[in-house]
């Protein structure tokens, strides 16, 4: 059953969004642009190498994934809650989920698991410590 869902998901998301089957989908928060198509698989915005014409440092023929994500988040009629998530710090990829269905992982909340150290670090805890 799990494989069946993964196959359906791949068939649907592959051609439309260029899904790379990372198993922890963030499309809704990135203007429906799959960050795994960035050659560096960056999940938190563009690198410093974006070309003057907005194309990718690594693949000059391709528009930077993050320019697309940025434009679409602003221009497309996406739900406000999705747009609000655009600037959230997305956690590191859980490489164990590669090839599994993100739909299933979403419903089981498996895709929201993060390592303990990551979970214990918050914006507040990170902001502290400048003065000791």
């Amino acid at each position: 059953m799990t494989t069946f869902i993964a196959t359906i998901e791949h068939v649907v998301k592959g051609p439309v969004w260029g899904c790379q089957d990372c198993g922890q989908c963030v499309l809704h928060s990135t203007g429906m642009t799959c960050p795994m198509n960035c050659p560096k698989t960056l999940r938190n915005g563009p690198c410093g190498g974006v070309r003057e014409n907005g194309h990718c440092e690594v693949k000059p023929e391709m528009k930077c994934v993050w320019l697309k994500a940025y434009d679409r988040t602003q221009d497309w009629p996406l739900p406000a809650t999705w747009k609000a998530e655009y600037n959230h710090l997305r956690p590191p990829v859980d490489n164990r989920l590669k090839g599994t269905s993100s739909w299933k992982n979403f419903f089981t909340k498996r895709d929201r698991w993060t390592p303990t150290g990551w979970k214990n670090s918050t914006d507040e805890s990170a902001a502290q410590g400048a003065d000791h």
Binding site: L42, N44, L89, P92, G117, S121, S125, A126, G129
Partner: peptide, 19 residues
């Protein structure tokens, strides 16, 4: 990625590895 690495550094500074 870069921002994740910054957060990882903060995690170590707090006294924990990623795990």
């Amino acid at each position: 990625d870069g921002p994740q690495l910054v957060r990882l550094m903060s995690t170590i500074k707090r006294g924990e590895y990623m795990s």
